[in-house]
Simulated scan of single mutants.
Amino acid sequence: MNGSKGSGGALRRWVQSPIFWGAVAILVLLALNVAKDPGYLAISVNPANGNLVGNLIDILRASAPILMIALGMALVIATGGIDLSVGSVMAVSGATSMVFLKGAGADPGAAFAALGLALGISAVLGLVNGVLVAYVGLQPFISTLVMMLAGRGLAKVITGGQNTNAENGLFRWIANGYVFGIPVVFLLAAAVVVIVGLVVRRSALGLMVEAIGINPRASRMAGVKPRGLLLAVYTLSGILAGVAGVFAVSTVMTVDVSRTGYQMELDAILAVVIGGTALTGGKFSIAGAAVGALLIATLDKTVLFLGVSSSATPAFKAVVIVVLCLAQSERVRAWFVRRRRAEGAGQPGQLPQTALLKLAGERKETEA
Rank of each mutant, 00 (worst) to 15 (best):
Ser7Met: 11
Gly9Leu: 15
Ala10Gln: 03
Leu11Gly: 01
Trp14Val: 08
Phe20Ser: 01
Val28Gln: 01
Ala35Met: 11
Tyr40Phe: 15
Leu41Cys: 06
Leu41Ala: 06
Ile43Leu: 06
Gly50Glu: 10
Ile57Lys: 11
Arg61Lys: 10
Ala64Ile: 11
Ile66His: 05
Ala70Glu: 06
Met73Leu: 10
Ile77Glu: 11
Thr79Tyr: 00
Leu84Trp: 02
Leu84Cys: 04
Ser88Gln: 00
Thr96Glu: 13
Lys102Cys: 13
Ala104Tyr: 02
Pro108Trp: 08
Ala110Cys: 15
Ala111Ser: 11
Phe112Met: 11
Gly116Pro: 07
Leu119Pro: 09
Ala123Tyr: 10
Gly130Glu: 12
Val131Leu: 08
Val131Met: 08
Ala134Phe: 02
Phe141His: 11
Val146Glu: 00
Val146Met: 13
Met147His: 02
Gly153Cys: 12
Val157Asn: 07
Thr164Glu: 04
Glu167Ser: 15
Leu170Gly: 11
Phe171Gly: 00
Arg172Lys: 14
Trp173Ala: 12
Tyr178Pro: 05
Phe180Leu: 15
Leu187Gly: 12
Ala189Ile: 08
Ala189Tyr: 13
Val193Ile: 12
Gly197Tyr: 04
Ser203Pro: 15
Ser203Ile: 12
Val209Thr: 09
Ala211Cys: 07
Ile212Phe: 08
Ile214Phe: 14
Ala218Cys: 13
Met221Gly: 13
Leu229Arg: 01
Ala232Arg: 01
Val233His: 04
Gly238Trp: 06
Val255Met: 04
Asp256Arg: 11
Thr260Val: 08
Tyr262Gly: 00
Ala268Val: 14
Ala271Cys: 08
Gly276Trp: 04
Ala278Gln: 03
Leu279Lys: 03
Lys283Asp: 05
Phe284Thr: 05
Leu295Asp: 09
Asp300Glu: 09
Lys301Asn: 14
Ser309Asp: 15
Thr313Val: 14
Pro314Cys: 13
Leu326His: 08
Gln328Tyr: 00
Arg333Phe: 04
Arg338His: 09
Arg339Ala: 07
Arg341Leu: 04
Ala345Glu: 05
Gly346Gln: 12
Gly346Ala: 06
Pro348Gly: 07
Gly361Ile: 15
Arg363Thr: 15
Glu367Gln: 14
Ala368Phe: 13
